[in-house]
Design a protein around this nucleic acid. Sequence first.
DNA 1: CCAGTATTTCGAAATAATCCGAAATATCGC
DNA 2: GCGATATTTCGGATTATTTCGAAATACTGG
Lengths: 105, 105
Amino acid sequence: MKLETAAQQLASLGNPIRLKLYRALVRAGHVGCACGVLQDKLGIPASTLSHHIKQLMETGLVYQERQGTTLVCHAHYPAMEKLVGYLADECCAESGCEVSKEKAA
Amino acid sequence: MKLETAAQQLASLGNPIRLKLYRALVRAGHVGCACGVLQDKLGIPASTLSHHIKQLMETGLVYQERQGTTLVCHAHYPAMEKLVGYLADECCAESGCEVSKEKAA
DNA sequence: CCAGTATTTCGAAATAATCCGAAATATCGC
DNA sequence: GCGATATTTCGGATTATTTCGAAATACTGG
């Protein structure tokens, strides 16, 4: 994974609205969540929400799928796994933290 | 962990220079790395580097410790573990991804 | 306490992000 | 194709981030 890509994904999660939005999608699981529902749930204007969803899609953390007249948003789990892996990758190589202990086990 | 805190930490990692810097510290392990060494390693002006280190310290991902005349920077592993945990927390509750399989095991 | 090295603060310009209303676009069922 | 519903694009004002040189500050060793 490229550092530049990871930085963009982290930046896209580094905004309270987008993080809230992303976590709502993660919680929604594989059925996803419609833009309109997210709008109601988060209580923010449609144009602002659309802007943030777009950013999350550009970094590959979220994708959309049309179902009838609505667009359903999904968290792209593999992308998140890769990102977390990238962060944990070199984690605590020398300090023997929990994460590295789990890796060793 | 507060969403606001997580967002700030993610944002602080969401910049190529800071991510590179942070990963250098992670790789350095418990011995850490002096500001001056980081400056040479990353090849960026001291004032810019200081600015980015400050941001990482404000979010709690990095801390400094004085050793003689130099300031040594350290990655704060527990903060990273909490952040990764926050992201993985609700990950794939319904989709059965790798992470949730590991959690179940 | 002075010289020397290490790091931060200041200042200021360039660039980018955030926000949201209004208008535009997309899709479906009929 | 028309009307209804859903979502995005546009415009632009406001605020925040990034950058780095120069000056200021912090600390140690002697």
